[in-house]
Amino acid sequence: MIRSFATRILHALITLFAVSWLCFALQQAAPGDYFTTLSLEPGLSARTLNAIREQSDPHASLVHRYVAWCAAMLHGDMGQSLAYHMSVYALLAPRILNTLLLSLAGLAGAWLAGLLLAAIPGRSAAVVHALSALLWSIPDPVLAFLLLLAAMRLHAMAPLTLDASSPFTSFAVAGTFTRALALPALAMTLGYLPLVLRHAQSGFLAARIAPAVEAAEVHGLPPHTVWFRYIFPEAANPLISLFGLGLGSLLSASLFVEVLFGWPGLGPLLLNAILQRDISVVAAGVLISALVLISGNLIADLLLWLHDPRLREASA
């Protein structure tokens, strides 16, 4: 078991290197760079531009720059942002926290609501099914827009904009923070909910007719015992895999919600960085996203392994 996890972590590292290299190479392959974009700025003279360009060592080769970047990365230095003139770490750290908060809140909401709604039995289940189909058929950006419009109409939850440099640091700002979080988190929840709901519904349906669950009912166990100790474990395996996938795609799922609601997370920053060819920010962002994806899968594997005793023997 330990060995198989070690192998997985080794694979993860290889993937991370490949992803970062790919990201570097693609940035290089596209015509122009950060300074091309900068030269469109009317207030900047060609001389100043050249001076700035010389500062950033433009003659080094792609491989050379990549190796230097990797070496720095291994020392914990993610490089300097060209556009913001600050270290990438200082730029990203608060935003990563914001993004994680938003997407975990969204994911938690979707899973909580999904599992609860999926447990509704009988005729009401058909209503839930139809509503989830409706929700699923609306494209996520449209859904978010509708939500935004509704909130503004009601004045109750007018979206707040947060300063990027002030993440959740003290309890004094907690109230504002929570209010600002509510709307984008709800948008994420609604976007992800139908997926969870569908899987949970069909999982529970199959689990309820499993022989072990039937036996629990024949033995007359109370309904909550049957649900928590027999039906949930029976239905859990595919749901755990889905949960891992959801964890892995946290960042990409929250990207457009952040842009739309002005949430100071990674999304808007990465979008700007791509447009401005701010290469070290983009590389760090992609790397973080890959890291999240890989940890999501690892967590799912670990949960599966903990949940199913038969897997523990099979992974010999």
Binding site: P211, A212, V213, E214, A215, A216, V218, H219, G220, L221, P222, R229, Y230, P233, E234, A236, H307, D308, P309, R310
Partner: peptide, 18 residues
């Protein structure tokens, strides 16, 4: 639960594997 006991024909699949 309390007054009747039941024994199944097919024991292995009527126990939860988890």
């Amino acid at each position: 639960h309390r007054r009747m006991g039941f024994i199944f024909q097919d024991p292995v699949s009527h126990l939860s594997p988890y």
